[in-house]
Write a protein that binds this DNA or RNA. Structure first.
Lengths: 221, 221
DNA sequence: CTACAAATCAACACCGCTGTTCACTATGAG
DNA sequence: CTCATAGTGAACAGCGGTGTTGATTTGTAG
């Protein structure tokens, strides 16, 4: 036991990447609380001291990992950042965005959950590129004639994000085959679509409720 | 320092309650990961050994606390369990249920989040009275003529629960005055209602999408 | 009023983690 | 070649945690 590793080739960038990669793995397996610098360093095949050289504290290591997740999420949902930034809303398919989002969540359940809570509870959520883009897309879309009137884009952003990242918990995305995950994913995306198109209540059966909600609408913001 | 407390009066039930109460406080303040038997025992004014007598492990202490939250949540949303169990669905107001749920989540943000994740990831979620009732309500409702056709009640249950308990994170429910919480709560419940009634997309603008979703509907389950 | 099971408690043994420091070694860039 | 620096290893001081054990007290049943 306790094989002595040969010394790493000197390559700070590579080393940093290795540490981050290991951090992702640990985070994905055991969540934020399971992550210790010691474990990450071991998994990365790096001396603990070296890890502390690259990330001053455990918190910073987590932060850097979450940042990485945010970037990947952006890429998965909106594609190349440079092109995506200034796409007009009309070019963006509501359906595709939600599908990609839900798919990412299903394939990276633990990582995604950590990202979600970290970003939503952060002091400056707008720092995260994905959140910024996602929310602003929703807001712009709400202005178009394709959208139902009176939407609260912020609430909807949180709702769909929360649903997308929590659904894999219920679906037991870890511990399932790719095929089963695919099936659960489909169920989710289909229902989001159906909900988006028709809601859950038949408005004609809720006249009173409907007028009340829509009246509130006018006086607010 | 290190005042020596006088030995506790012998009263196992009371002691157990004190421990659970302290556990709730700790959980509410610092979440699942902040909970240690040591802290709970100290806060409860109980020897750590005593705590271990009542709850064999940290996990079991958490489990018991989550159970308590489930009960409270049930009570807050559905009222007295004995009466609620066999209410016909028609007597239950969709609006009220969602309002009470969101309100509970807003007033018990950390506790609620722990409950949500614990229940959804548990091996036997149906053990939790609230989840069981909530989901089955949704399923029964989906069968009525008040509901839009083709709803996936399970997806919707997870979606709304997730939204209700994650919204307070975004809303920074801790660290806000009662008045501000109330305002954020209103925004959420209103939007849920609006969404339930009208969705987000104008169906007439999404004919193709609509027919596709509804076609899928027929062949599935 | 006594016996006894159960409740309470202090102390024990042990773990893993954080963050720091320091001396040493290898290495790639210039 | 040389030298700043990445990487290593080891040790330290400290913290807070988990479970366990055996002695001690105490309510209560008989």
């Amino acid at each position: 036991m306790s094989e002595r590793r040969p010394r790493r080739r000197r390559d700070p960038d590579r080393t940093r990447e290795d540490i981050l990669e290991a951090a992702r793995e640990v985070l994905a397996e055991d969540g934020k609380e399971g992550l210790s610098v010691a474990r990450v360093a071991q998994r990365a095949g790096v001396n603990r001291g070296t890890a502390y050289q690259h990330f001053q504290t455990r918190e910073q290591l987590i932060e850097a990992t979450v940042e990485w997740v945010g970037d990947k999420l952006f890429e998965a949902v909106f594609g190349d950042p440079d092109e995506a930034k200034d796409q007009p809303v009309e070019n963006i398919s509501v359906e595709d965005v939600n599908d990609q989002l839900a798919s990412f969540a299903m394939e990276n359940p633990a990582l995604g959950r950590v990202w979600l809570l970290e970003v939503l509870s952060s002091r400056r959520p707008a720092k995260d590129p994905f959140w910024r883009q996602y929310k602003s897309n929703f807001e712009k879309f709400a202005q178009t004639s394709f959208a139902q009137p009176g939407m609260d884009a912020e609430v909807l952003s949180v709702l769909i994000l929360a649903g997308s990242f929590i659904w894999p918990v219920w679906a037991r995305a870890h511990a399932r085959s790719a095929k089963e995950r695919e099936k659960m994913l489909k169920r989710f995306t289909r229902e989001i679509l159906r909900l988006s198109l028709h809601g859950t209540l038949r408005p004609e059966k809720y006249r009173e409720l409907d007028t009340r909600v829509m009246r509130d609408l006018r006086k607010k913001r």
